Computed example of a mutant assay.
Amino acid sequence: MTETERDALSKVPAITLGFWIIKILATTLGETAGDTVSMSMNLGYLVGTAIFAAILVVLVVAQIAADRYRPLLYWATIIASTTAGTTMADFATRSLWIGYPGGSLLLFGCVLASLAIWHRTLGRIDADTVATPRAEVFYWVTITFSQTLGTALGDWTADTGGLGYGGAALVFGVLLAGVAAAYYWTRASRVLLFWAAFILTRPLGAAVGDLLDKPIDHGGLAFSRPLASLVLGAAILLLVLLLPQRAGGHPAVGRNA
């Protein structure tokens, strides 16, 4: 295989309806799994962050070393990023004493900085260009920041906006529907819409995850966090195995076809 042919192989999946369904389930799992370690196991946010960040680094290295898009590895890395995002957001907003507004602003700045450096370095921030190690590093850094930001936004809306977890899930579901409408009926930047949707699926998952596992007197359904995580993990695995999985198209394919 030539270098040009290698560059044409995207390492991330095609963006389909199935992608977004699995992504929302993965973000919900990230919330319940993160809370299981930091709260149910009483390890705290810092220890939880260290555990999940270490797992994330190992999986990102494996993802970068892979010779092509591998669905199970990719989605395991997404789950690791969203779980690490849960504990990192909780640590930023609660343990650093900057609250939801401060944590959300800090993390939003991190997302923008990551995208800006990515664009300045490689010229594009389109997910379809993720085929080289440098692009993958930027991709996963940006994804992790976006997952963390989404957690903070979800908790902020549910806890301080007076909406509760169900109301917060509805708000972010409507916002996602707005992004989908913009995709189909406007000429808005597809790259911008992708990252907007990617960020918004995380607070939706955070709100749904909290709705499932928080105590009833806090507005949740008090389901077992480990059990909820197990069920969500099984559902994700089933969908990854059953739904068609293919690598996203890369611009180089068209140039070399």
Rank of each mutant, 00 (worst) to 15 (best):
D217F: 12
S38A: 15
L243G: 10
D213Q: 14
L170W: 10
E5G: 00
S38H: 06
T144W: 02
Y69P: 01
I79H: 03
H218Y: 05
G205I: 06
Y45H: 14
T4V: 09
W195A: 01
F52W: 08
A228Q: 01
T121P: 01
D90V: 02
L122K: 10
S40C: 03
A14W: 03
P13V: 04
G233Q: 04
P215E: 09
S104E: 12
L153F: 08
G34M: 03
V37Q: 03
V61R: 13
A135S: 15
T77L: 10
A234F: 09
I143P: 03
A234S: 11
G166D: 08
P13H: 01
R246T: 10
I117T: 13
Y165K: 13
K11E: 08
M39P: 00
A50I: 11
A80T: 08
G166I: 00
L239W: 04
Q245V: 08
L176Y: 03
F145T: 00
T28K: 02
A135V: 08
P215M: 10
Y74E: 01
F194W: 06
V130I: 11
A76H: 00
A53W: 06
E31K: 01
R68A: 14
I55F: 14
G233H: 04
A113P: 01
A247W: 05
A135H: 04
L122C: 09
A76D: 00
L106Y: 10
W195I: 07
L43V: 00
G99K: 07
D35R: 04
A152Q: 06
K23R: 13
K23N: 06
L59V: 11
Q245R: 07
A33S: 05
G99M: 11
G233W: 00
S38N: 11
R70C: 10
T142I: 07
F172C: 09
L153V: 10
N42F: 13
A196H: 07
A207N: 06
W20Q: 10
P226E: 01
A53V: 14
Y74A: 05
L56E: 06
